[in-house]
Amino acid sequence: MKRILLIDDDHITNMLNERIIKYTQVAESVHVCISAQKALNLITDIIDKQESIPEVILLDIRMPIMDGFGFLEEFAKIPESITSDVKIAMLTSSLEDSEKDRAYKYKNVIDFINKPLNEVKIREFIKKAETTPKIFFK
C-alpha cells in the first residue's frame, strides 16, 4: 500500500480526490497540501525526521506562488536516494500537450491525469506506479 500526497490549491478538488482515494482504498494514507511550498516543507520535515516520504504524489500544475513545475524543480534537488521510490502524476485540467512534455522531463513524473479524478483513473495510476521500477535512470 502506498502513501499518497495530494498537492492542489483547490479545496473542493482536494476534498473530492481525498474521498475517491479513500473510497477506492488504493492507498494506505492520503495527505493533502494546499500549496506546493507546503508540500515541500512537509517533505523536508519528513526527510529531517529521517522518515520515508510518500511514494505517490498527485500534483496540480496551476497553483499560485509556486506552480507544479516549481515544485518539480525543487523536488529534483532532493537526493535521488530519497526520491527514487517516489512516483508523481500530474493532475490537471490543462489540455496543453506542451505541459505534458515539460512534466515528463522530470524523472519522477510517470503519468498525466486529466481532471476530474475518478475511480478508474486512480486505480490505473496506482497500478502503473506499482509496476514502474525504481526511478534511477530516465
Binding site: D10, I12, L16, R62, S93, K115, P116, N118
Partner: peptide
Amino acid sequence: VYSTSHDLRSPLMSLMGLIDLCIS
C-alpha cells in the same frame, strides 16, 4: 487563454467530480 481555460475548467471538473460523487 491558458489561464482562462484552466480557471474555467478547474471548477467545472470539480463540479463533475461532485456530480459523480452524488451518483455514486
